[in-house]
Design a protein around this nucleic acid. Sequence first.
RNA 1: GGGCGGGUAGCUCAGCCGGGAGAGCGCCACGCUUACACCGUGGAUGUCACAGGUUCGAACCCUGUCCCGCCUACCA
Length: 885
Amino acid sequence: MAKRELGKAFEPAAAEKRLYEYWLKNNYFHAQDESEAPAFSIVIPPPNVTGMLHMGHALNNTLQDIIIRFKRMQGYNTLWMPGMDHAGIATQNVVEQQLIKEGTSRHELGREKFIARVWEWKEKYGGVIINQLKRLGCSCDWERQRFTMDKGLSNAVREVFVRLYNEGMIYQGDYIVNWCPRCHTAISDLEVEFKQDQSFLWNIRYPFADGQGEIVVATTRPETMLGDTAVAVHPNDERYKDKIGKYVILPLMNKKIPIIADDYVTMDFGSGAVKITPASDPNDFAMAQRHNLEIIAVIDGNGFINENGGVYKGQDRYEARKNVVDDLEKGGYLVGTEPYAHNVGQCYRCKTDIEPMVSKQWFVKIKPLAKQAIAAVVKDKTKIIPKTWEATYFEWMNNIRDWCISRQLWWGHRIPVWYCENCKKVIVATVDPDKCPDCGGTSLKQDEDVLDTWFSSALWPFSTLGWPKETKALKTFYPTSLLITGFDILFFWVARMMMMGLYVMKDVPFKHVYLHALVRDEKGEKMSKSKGNSIDPLLMIDQYGTDAFRFTLAAYTAQGRDVRLSPERIEGYKFFVNKIWNASKLTFTNLEDFDESATLNVADSLPDIWIKARLNRAIEEITLSLDEYRFNDAAAAVYRFIWHELCDWYLELSKPVFYGKGAPEKRQAAQKTLYVVFQTMLQLLHPFMPFLTEELWQVLRGSDKDSIMVSKFPVIKEEWINEAAEKEMEMIMEIITSVRNIRGEMRIAPSQKLNVLISAADEQTSKIIEHGENYILNLANLESMKVEINIIEPKGVATAVIGSTKIFVPLAGIVDISGEKARLEKELAKISKDLEQSSRKLANRDFRAKAAPEIIQKEEDKLKDFQKKFATLENALKKLKGLSA
RNA sequence: GGGCGGGUAGCUCAGCCGGGAGAGCGCCACGCUUACACCGUGGAUGUCACAGGUUCGAACCCUGUCCCGCCUACCA
């Protein structure tokens, strides 16, 4: 085998670039539309076209790439479908800001030109995140990349809209919606964020129209009283029973409004009477519909009082609040003001207070869709992982309200509805009509609104595969196998994909949904730009390399737990990368003269057999963990195998053989083992650390061979299973560790060679230990080792015990024996505690009567062990005291 | 108001279908042994939030309490 040179350290930046290009060039990321191999597919949660890679993306896409690479190596025809979302409000905002800087506006430009500008912006600046995903190592099938505003996806949107409309699932009407006075659009219930606000509760007196007394109402929004059209009380409220149907005078507006009765009113809140403003409150709106109340809007789309607000017209809603309160007070209508904490809805995008407003909007009738989506999860057609999220999913789906899908924006899928200006006919069509089907008129006007961005995202799992065309890709990859996303968009996106997938495709969009947690800072706070605590993933990649970064994310991704990240943690895994790099250097040096094809007649050594048995266990654990999306467990298993088994033990045990201190055939056997184990280790690690493993794989096997990413993921090899060897090795390792312990505790210089006497309980153990003599001599740094059966403890030794095996280290002439006393006493204290606990347990009659027999047996074995150890140590201590006395 | 998750070593967290408290980092001691000081070897460290209960036995199961997150909700 050729000589291989590795530099002093892995250089991520250069290697990452080179290897990613190599993968692309060889088309490894590409999935086949048709294949013999079983399909495995994931659609990416499409990032916003305006987006920059943040930690959430980094985590989300790292996890996807780990699974995709794992499955690809397992031989699946693997598709990772990438793409982006047009992000209506966000993108429109970005371009509008640009226009403002240029001293113009979208209104000056006009709709068509504005949209052209957005496209221009998209081509020029949009989608930087795609290149950032590449730096993360994502193995997406880039040839298939989609954008929600693409022609194909836009067709899908229209097709679904028309279908829903024709089946009576979409309707238009004047309803109260969440209106953002800054974005000038309606938003869905989900897009409203509630924030607690320290405000006041104003108590206002409404006099009866007949002059007989008054009724007091409380409100957090006094300015809305301008639009009050009733006062409501509970029908069973004795205080007001006789007042129902009477009228009060609305202060400031000097208007008669009725007192009505409705169950919605809580009797014991405030005075038990509530003012009703149907145009400014969703509950009041609902009540107005029940009671046929007048609906008077007093606040306009900008958040200003309109012409219905009398003298307050033209005032901003907060200014009007102040003035209304002042005037109420002046007029003697204000009964009192009390501090009050309540929730205020804000626009998720711009944090402006939402103004509930009545306007004409499009809605999707959602209950029938939700019903199917619930059933699919109940029947396990789609599995939500971790399962705890199912409850949340059901809770939301069961209480879902109709989805407002129209947005008063320009950037987005324009609603495919046209109005004939001649005969008022409403035309709903997938292709732009040129004349009215009824009257033939050609003066058609398209609905001004666009659809909620999530409407198109909801179709993502099938629209990206070519639907409504019946493509091969759709047939092969739908339903997709898995969706990986953050729990924060369970409702926004996952739930809606479930509903649309079932409605359109008659099948679930994915079989598994893995919901991961949020990335937080080391204090557990959500990362955000405004808090200034966000960590830039690209900076981390620059500093520590993609592999270390990815591994950190995986290692901290425990189900149902947030990922707390800090640069120090990533640095820790950079050390791991370095460790692997150096182990590779050692490996490659020792494999220089290795001939892969040579046949060997020499048997494997114990470490050879052992490391393969351990490798088997690592394969099993990693595979199982990844199958169950336990990323942290999988990462820990790789880490432990590489560092604590391969590096700490196998490489150390094998050094003498490699350095030629034995027969050449033994060296060849070790080389063969190392060659196999090292390759397998790289394969296991590949999903986590794609770059490092590819680099090493190619150096090890020669770069003319295939990439590691298309090699076969390791499976357990029957012939490697060897429990006996694991036990034997464990014995030897324990002996080495106990001598090291004595050395450390007794402060014996590492350079000081020791002689050791070992007392084995039986012939078999004695053989095992003798078998491992060379390993023990080397790793415990001994001059000599002697094993006998049941020898009497010599004088002047330090003693260690492993079960029935005793290890004696003569200290005469090496170190003052008095230190051993303290060491033994410490050990004795520890063991006597265990001993006491165990014997107490066994002395308990109930324990003997009720515990499982194998547990009792185990406990008895334990006790015997403790007793032996205790006796040995005690004996040693006695001897020591006798000696020094 | 309802729901979910969490409170285990100085820090971040595993362990939780009940039977000898773990990892990583940090800390202490020793060591430049021909892959690695981004390292090696050894060591110290915990009334497993609190209070009850079930059990032969509880970090793990049950009940309650206290904190900390998050989600959800129309009490004006």
